[in-house]
Amino acid sequence: MNGNLSVLGRAMRTGQARLGLVLLSVVGFVVLFGHFLMPYAPDTIVGQPLADPDGSFLLGTDILGRDVLSRLLDGGLTLSWMAVLAAGLGVFLGCLVGLTAAYRGGAVDAVLMRAMDVLLSFPEIIFVLLFVSMLGRSTLLTSVLVGIAFMPGVSRVLRGAALPVVASEYVLWARANGLPPRQVLLREVLPGVTSPLMVETGMRLVWAVAAIASLSYLGFGIAPPAADWGLMVGENQDGLSVAPLPVLAPITLILMMALGGNLVAESVARTVGRTEGKR
């Protein structure tokens, strides 16, 4: 019976991962190729505001009279690269700090991790709000800030994962043989923490999408008149009750993107958990 369950479960899991991949590919297709399929330029005013969908505007027009479909097809790219940059930066910095702390130990470890505690005390949204209001609004700045806000969380995970690796025999052997720390970290320690690294990257990507969309909604993210999914929700929410599509369409895409990423990351995490559990 147990075997049946595990087979069933496994099928479900692969199904879940497959669903995630399908969602991500649809969104990825829109993000990468949408630009070439737009019926109108995304910033052009082509009709009356909040017109109902018809033959010329398949999803209607937005609050300014721009074509919703065109803006939808154009609006994923910025959000995507911002999320990728933020997650990448967060994982890179977190990895750097976490591995260094684990490897060096002692005072370096203590100082680094307390510094991370200080950063960790600022909730992500608050942290970004604080600096954006100080330095002004720019897409690059926002993604860098989200990345920095992710750093403490990632560093704690990776430090935890690296500690047993650092204490392992082959790392001790490499250090005793005088290999430079950078090589030891890159060749010996990093491969030992790839699984948590992958899970972290996936989850941070999902969170970055949510955080950046929320910031755009609060008015501190991507600036108008850019076409952007988060911004579209904020811009058009006044008309939600007469024209729901300009709000619901970008929400659907954000959701597909985040949900797809979430499903894939979760299945990876679970597979990792199973294989490591057996070791």
Binding site: D43, T44, I45, I63, L64, S133, G136, R137, G219, A223, P224, P225
Partner: peptide, 24 residues
């Protein structure tokens, strides 16, 4: 905001590039 955006869009027709800068 909408006024600035409509103007930016109108100006583009004469090759004039207008950005909308929203500040607190």
């Amino acid at each position: 905001r909408e006024l600035a955006q409509v103007f930016a869009e109108n100006a583009a027709k004469a090759g004039v590039k207008v950005e909308v800068n929203v500040v607190p």
